[in-house]
Design a protein around this nucleic acid. Sequence first.
DNA 1: AATGAATGAGGGTTCATTCAT
DNA 2: GATGAATGAACCCTCATTCAT
Lengths: 231, 231, 231, 231
Amino acid sequence: MPIAAGTPADQAPVQPKRERRKEARPRELLAAALDLFVEKGFAATRSEEVAARAGVSKGTLFLYFPTKEELFKAVVRENISGRFSEWNDEFLSFDGSSEEMVRYCLKVWWERIGETRASGITKLMLSEAQNFPDLAAFYHQEVVQPGQELICRILQRGVERGEFRPMDVEYAAYGLTAPMVFLTMMKHSLCACMPKDTPLDAERFIAAQTDNLLLGLCIRPPAGAPAGSAS
Amino acid sequence: MPIAAGTPADQAPVQPKRERRKEARPRELLAAALDLFVEKGFAATRSEEVAARAGVSKGTLFLYFPTKEELFKAVVRENISGRFSEWNDEFLSFDGSSEEMVRYCLKVWWERIGETRASGITKLMLSEAQNFPDLAAFYHQEVVQPGQELICRILQRGVERGEFRPMDVEYAAYGLTAPMVFLTMMKHSLCACMPKDTPLDAERFIAAQTDNLLLGLCIRPPAGAPAGSAS
Amino acid sequence: MPIAAGTPADQAPVQPKRERRKEARPRELLAAALDLFVEKGFAATRSEEVAARAGVSKGTLFLYFPTKEELFKAVVRENISGRFSEWNDEFLSFDGSSEEMVRYCLKVWWERIGETRASGITKLMLSEAQNFPDLAAFYHQEVVQPGQELICRILQRGVERGEFRPMDVEYAAYGLTAPMVFLTMMKHSLCACMPKDTPLDAERFIAAQTDNLLLGLCIRPPAGAPAGSAS
Amino acid sequence: MPIAAGTPADQAPVQPKRERRKEARPRELLAAALDLFVEKGFAATRSEEVAARAGVSKGTLFLYFPTKEELFKAVVRENISGRFSEWNDEFLSFDGSSEEMVRYCLKVWWERIGETRASGITKLMLSEAQNFPDLAAFYHQEVVQPGQELICRILQRGVERGEFRPMDVEYAAYGLTAPMVFLTMMKHSLCACMPKDTPLDAERFIAAQTDNLLLGLCIRPPAGAPAGSAS
DNA sequence: AATGAATGAGGGTTCATTCAT
DNA sequence: GATGAATGAACCCTCATTCAT
């Protein structure tokens, strides 16, 4: 499954009732804005384009978001649902080995974030952080920190259960974060430019990274590991 | 050595002889532009600011670069080292173990790219790729590909010499790339916004990633590795 | 009775029977518009505000007045009393001295115009005349001229009856107009901004102006005049 | 001398040196802005018009004044020179009768303010006070108050020298202010709309008001007074 | 070559006006 | 009639770019 340009998504089909629209509008505008902000950056995206992609006129956009900056903030907030608590619970009640947890973690991230439109937020946030320091702080606190802590807990569990080697847990956690962020950035930047010839196969990427990561983490050769490693 | 706010590095050097100012101008402008583009993004950087930081007037900037876009392209091109062939030679004549090569590779990357102003180019390129597709292609060809190939060659050598396990070399190479890119992006985005409390210690980060990476790659426990891993 | 901030006067009356709302609508809208136009000027008043103050929706306003300009014109016309003929009659049948007529004239102006919402029209008209030349002409013809003529007649009567000195009646009439207009303008501009400390006491103002005016007009010291003047 | 529409003043003749222009620009822009603001009101005047009347492009205006509001403030400030201290001195060293002082005061006001472009500021300020409360306070403090005090001093002097009757000096002072303000407002509003037929002859207006005012103020019939008044 | 005053197209935002419900 | 969501022309302001000096 090679990744490439900005998944255009489904566009406004048949006009529903007026009432319906009013409730749907904010979501439609945010979706349009996310696409464009990710694609071209905040500054290079014109308000009118956002409106047009959402199928409304320029003025309508400002009926729902008082400024372009507020639109940006709303885009970020909209896509940071508090799914971490849900995930936390998922992992608290997780019953398998720690290796399985790591595999599950990366798999689930890809399914729920990486290959969805939400991954654009990461690109957006890293690209524009300097211009929106307060949002950056918010994002760090609401997304980066909780994610980091979730991963730390998994690694810690592995160490305590004797599955993982002792390690600098806090920084080892970046072993999961870095590949995901890298993949996301590539998907929304260079990969979106190169046509077909040099794609980045996300699943192959994740497989390779997961394998090597676990080989490094596990004390006993991991179940799903390739043969021939440090034995 | 924690990284945080945009390490200003060497700024505005004291006025040298008037003679060589003229020749130095383009370089000074490019340096100023790089700083600002990295700090604020392409669109949010005003031409006049670039000129001011380089100590010249607005008009002078356009004497050297016909448009802001051309300036941007020049900045990227100027800072995309064509030094890969040189590095290649370094590695061709490298005499140590493949593990040492990997360690050296990451160390050298940090010294020559990561902690210098050049790292800003990665941030810039990933952030603006969609707006400069031709540059993105150029960057991919001049930086990503050669870097990738260099790493592949190291891994391949390790496998062939029986030091590294058999692997999907092409994608395993991202095991080196991803942490570096991640570190770079963080340094120039979220880390530059956060105060002192949550910095990302670059050397600790590299140490942790290198350790785990090599544990995963090596057949025999790597020399510099932490104890207790898959043995 | 010092005048200061925009005496709100009677606002939004309690909802009357639903039946007569429809008929009352235009009047309510005009009242709301008058308040707002006087307070903020024509341009700075938003149509929606007018509607809101009248307790209806934006759309309803345009049901009664096709454009904002027409609303403005209606406001002015509505508040330009055609009551001059009525007042004329009052003065034709006036039985007292001409001095009393002048006093009565100023007193009545204050009671019927100056201290009511109608005084806002003067402010509005003088402020916006250039943007509504046809209205200005209409106002001049319906208000300024009749008022002027009414005053002239009073002065003329005084001269003819030997109560007032001979004078340039036409321009002497401004001796009554100027203070009233001045007071109105102040009330609706500077006085509405200043806090409590420097108010303009309308009745004291009128008393002082009336006294001096009559001392200048009368041949014999006027009855209500302060002692010590040219005798 | 009938007053009518907004004296267009002299427009940009031959292009002087570039250097010269830069110094002259602010003044030219302020002059243009004063004309237009007085003529059409603040809100109804477009920035581009101001620039055009000053013979420059839209952008140039914003080189000198950061916002339209700042332009407005600058217009008001520019035209409120601290001429009151000068006038104060003039009147402190005045040697004639108090009647002469009053006559001189009104005459000089007309020459220096009333018939010049500066009179537009009064119109502007009274029309827009509500939208610029801080400027209104500034104007009141810098213009209205000092003027009022100057007049009070003249009247007080007259009373103390036995030339004027005892009076409520503070409010009697409006006897000079009101006609001047009235004349100014009329000149810049209704009079600017009516073509030729109903002009307001400023000198005849001032003569009539001065005469009557002094008849009211003076204990002995004033020297320049019309015959036949209260004797 | 260097300057910086001037330009004007471009884009964010407002708000009078329309019209489907 | 009444509503208020939607429209889009208009306007303020920015800033890359030009060019007279």
